[in-house]
Simulated assay, not measured.
Amino acid sequence: MVSVLLVHHSPSEATNRIAEAALAGLRMPGLGGIDVVVRSALEASAADVLAADAYVLGTTANFGYISGALKHFFDTTYDEVRDPTAGRPFSYWIHGGYDTTGAETAMKQISTGLGWSLAFDPLILTGEVGAEHLEKATELVATVAASALA
């Protein structure tokens, strides 16, 4: 059994829709053998990260940066999980109103520091969330899960 940890901060209707599409992707019937653990960014712990085989992260872009909640997640888990989880597959989504540049930079820097392996191009979007974005979120997480199974 492979465990995929979905950690997200989804305070808006738009980001909540992305999180729901992501969860649907992790529960696709064709994947099988996947244990899905969902945590809000303020509740996720180092133990959750250490127990998982792959990661999907989601955040809003707030004031040009990742959400404070996701930053808190990284701040409280980083040192403990960095070495034992290096090489594990992951991907993420970022949703912003206007600009996601700082949030994108932060996610690249943090995940590089962790040594995680990007399994699918991140979903980066601003403005309205459409059906094509939700489909990509589903594909993103299914690919991360399949990478963990391989």
Rank of each mutant, 00 (worst) to 15 (best):
F120Y: 12
T126C: 07
G96I: 07
R82Q: 02
R39C: 00
T126W: 09
Y55T: 06
A44Q: 10
V2C: 02
L114Q: 07
A150Y: 11
L5N: 01
T138P: 05
L123D: 06
N16S: 13
L31W: 10
D53S: 09
S91F: 00
E13V: 14
V56M: 06
G115T: 03
E80Q: 05
G68T: 08
F90G: 08
A19K: 03
E43Q: 03
D79V: 13
L114S: 06
I110L: 03
V144M: 04
G96Q: 06
P84W: 03
L57F: 15
T76E: 07
A22K: 11
A22M: 15
N62L: 10
R39S: 00
Q109C: 00
F73V: 00
R17S: 15
T105I: 14
E20Y: 10
G32N: 13
I34N: 08
A103Q: 04
D48M: 08
H95Y: 11
L57C: 01
L123C: 07
A145T: 13
Y92K: 03
G58S: 05
V38M: 05
R27L: 10
S147Y: 02
M1Y: 10
V38E: 10
I94Y: 08
A61D: 08
W93R: 06
L149V: 04
A103I: 03
Y65G: 09
S45M: 01
P84I: 05
A69Q: 00
V36S: 12
L134S: 07
G32M: 08
L123V: 07
A61E: 12
P11N: 05
A145D: 10
P29H: 11
D99K: 06
G130R: 15
A19M: 02
I34Y: 12
E43T: 06
L118M: 13
I94D: 05
A46I: 06
F63M: 14
T15P: 12
G58Q: 06
L149H: 08
T143G: 00
Y78D: 01
G115L: 00
T101Y: 13
W93Y: 15
A22T: 15
A103F: 08
A103K: 02
S67V: 08
K71M: 03
M1V: 14
L6R: 10
L149A: 09
S117R: 15
A142D: 01
E128T: 13
M107K: 04
L70C: 04
T138E: 14
T100Q: 01
D83R: 10
A22R: 14
M28P: 00
A131E: 15
A47P: 01
E135A: 13
V129C: 11
Y78I: 00
A52Q: 06
V37N: 09
L26C: 13
Y55C: 05
E20I: 14
E13F: 03
D99M: 04
W116N: 01
T59L: 04
F90E: 09
G97K: 11
A145N: 07
V144G: 05
Q109F: 09
T76A: 04
A46D: 11
T15F: 13
T85I: 15
R82I: 02
E135L: 11
A51V: 04
Y55I: 04
V144P: 02
